[in-house]
Computed example of a mutant assay.
Amino acid sequence: MSQIRPKLGAIAVVIHDGRALLVRRKNEPDAGKWGFAGGHVEWGETAFDAAARELEEETGVLATALRYLTNVDVILRDDAGDVTFHCLLAAVECRYESGTPFAADDVNDAAWFAIEDVAALDKSDRVDEMIRLVSGSNAP
């Protein structure tokens, strides 16, 4: 019998010139919410490489992975309390290199947001925390 295991993903946290690069997710979990570009880590791929690849696939933006920020557990449960989704995301700070964001792959929108404007968005959990980790500020 095979054991069900969590999926592994990576998110690219990009802050540039006082703005955060966010995408609006097309698919669950978090469909319709703003968050950082990211997705599954492929077999044999590092989380650094996955974060940069997913960022380019979803937004067309090129960036260099710099450092791990933290891990984010995404665990969803049904009404009975049974786990329906489990993913461990490696949050990776990435330095913007080039490109103008556009929506591609599995996102509906991609845009730069002034850090002070992020608080008002309907967004994924811990987006504010990731921004604080990178920017070193108390915003948003």
Rank of each mutant, 00 (worst) to 15 (best):
A91K: 11
R25I: 03
L89R: 02
A104V: 06
K7F: 02
M1K: 07
A80M: 03
P140A: 13
M1Q: 13
A80R: 00
L88Q: 10
A111L: 06
D109N: 12
T84F: 06
G38K: 07
R19Q: 15
D73S: 14
L89E: 08
G35D: 04
L55T: 04
V61D: 08
F48L: 10
M130W: 12
E42F: 06
S135V: 06
A91C: 14
A103G: 02
A110V: 04
F48N: 09
V61T: 07
R126Y: 15
D128T: 14
G9A: 15
V74C: 11
I4P: 07
E57F: 05
L22D: 00
H86P: 03
R24A: 03
D106F: 00
A120W: 06
I115K: 00
F36C: 10
T84S: 11
E54D: 04
A10G: 10
T84W: 04
N138F: 07
D78V: 03
D49F: 01
V127M: 12
A120L: 04
V23D: 05
F48Q: 02
D117H: 14
R5W: 11
L8H: 14
D128M: 04
D109Q: 05
M130V: 06
K123M: 13
E56Q: 12
A104P: 08
L8R: 08
N27M: 04
G18V: 06
M130L: 15
N27H: 05
T100K: 05
V14Y: 08
V83A: 00
H86N: 11
P6D: 07
K33N: 00
G136T: 01
D17W: 03
R132Q: 10
E57A: 05
L62R: 15
L62Y: 12
I75G: 03
G38E: 09
T70I: 02
R53G: 06
V92I: 15
L21S: 05
D105C: 06
G60H: 09
Y68C: 01
R77W: 08
V127A: 05
